[in-house]
């Protein structure tokens, strides 16, 4: 019985073409110029980056006319230290990932933390975007939970935001 056929090996391989939307194309172009653009909802004024081309709260489409530039710097409001080996990730070293709330917005973007030892990471740090390099005018495929077009975040070296300021930012972000 031991040589019975117990399993079927199969590979599901499918090709997909997912053309980027206009908003996504413009965002990519901006990333190439190390600029961060967002759409501002004309009804509730919430900001979205990358621009979605709509506001999911107000159910309205947004277009080029709602595009604005936002600062690629902000405050680290949360972080985690990951051991990539344990999550089937690429690379092998311990690394830190964090949520940065962009200045003047309620947007937090997640990304790898660069230029700082994992042990030294703390909330309140001021961070700026580390941009990805475009490949043939396109963003390298990333996927996952990270921010699109931004490889990660590095400290600006400016003084930290206080714990109170961080809590205030988080509170503001949670308001409807």
């Amino acid at each position: 019985m031991s040589d019975d056929v117990k399993v079927l090996n199969s590979v599901v391989s499918l090709d997909y073409e997912r053309p980027p939307t206009r908003a996504a194309r413009r965002y990519t172009e901006a990333v190439g110029e190390k600029r961060l653009i967002a759409h501002r909802c004309p009804e509730c004024e919430r900001l979205y980056t990358p621009p979605k081309g709509y506001c999911p709260v107000c159910v309205v489409l947004t277009t080029d006319e709602h595009e604005i530039e936002v600062s690629p710097e902000g405050v680290l409001v949360s972080y985690t230290v990951t051991n990539p080996d344990k999550l089937h990730q690429q690379g092998g070293k311990t690394s830190a990932r964090g949520d940065v709330m962009l200045d003047g917005t309620r947007i937090t973007l997640m990304g790898e933390l660069d230029g700082v030892e994992a042990a030294d990471v703390h909330t309140g740090m001021r961070m700026r975007a580390v941009w990805v390099e475009l490949e043939d005018g396109r963003l390298p495929s990333s996927g996952g939970w990270g921010a699109v077009g931004i490889k990660g975040w590095e400290p600006t070296g400016e003084p930290d935001a206080s714990r109170e300021e961080v809590q205030e930012l988080l509170k503001k972000a949670g308001e409807s």
Binding site: V7, N9, D15, Y16, G137, R138, S141
Partner: peptide, 29 residues
Amino acid sequence: MSDTPVPIDTVEMPYVRTLGPVISRFFTG
């Protein structure tokens, strides 16, 4: 920018399917 070629994204996953007693017997045959 409108003529940017559309990238092909291949979604490829291997599956090792356990068969259970009946399909196992059929495939063994």
